[in-house]
């Protein structure tokens, strides 16, 4: 499953996508994020399954454009820390 967390508003698309088929649940991304917006949780999108998945915390979902701004400001070519540590490439940013 691909879970897209974030939003689209008048100023653009701001989504962090988690591919749960690729995610191996290692949790390396959680300390990598300086803002602490990721968390491992029970898969709420498939209530009959028992696996866990990485989610973007609720309080950041409506403002990730701003929550992620510190890493995005580092420089246009630098790789985002959460994306960098994810070996299975399960995390992508839309902007």
């Amino acid at each position: 499953m691909i879970a897209n967390f974030g939003y689209k508003d008048g100023s653009g698309d701001f989504y962090i996508s988690i591919d749960t088929d690729k995610c191996n649940g290692c949790g390396d991304c959680i300390p990598a994020c300086p803002v602490g917006l990721l968390q491992i949780r029970e898969n709420e999108y498939d209530p009959m399954a028992d696996d866990n998945m990485v989610v973007v915390l609720e309080e950041h979902r409506k403002k990730i454009k701003y929550s992620c701004a510190p890493c995005k400001n580092e420089g246009k070519d630098s790789i985002l820390p959460c994306v960098k540590v994810c070996l299975p490439n399960a995390i992508t940013h839309s902007w």
């Binding site: 691909i2 897209n4 974030g6 939003y7 689209k8 999108y45 498939d46 979902r61 409506k62």
Partner: peptide
């Protein structure tokens, strides 16, 4: 009926 991809927008009223 199992979810394979989703997005939700509850940030903006448009």
């Amino acid at each position: 009926g199992k979810v394979t991809n989703f997005l939700m927008n509850d940030k903006c009223a448009a």
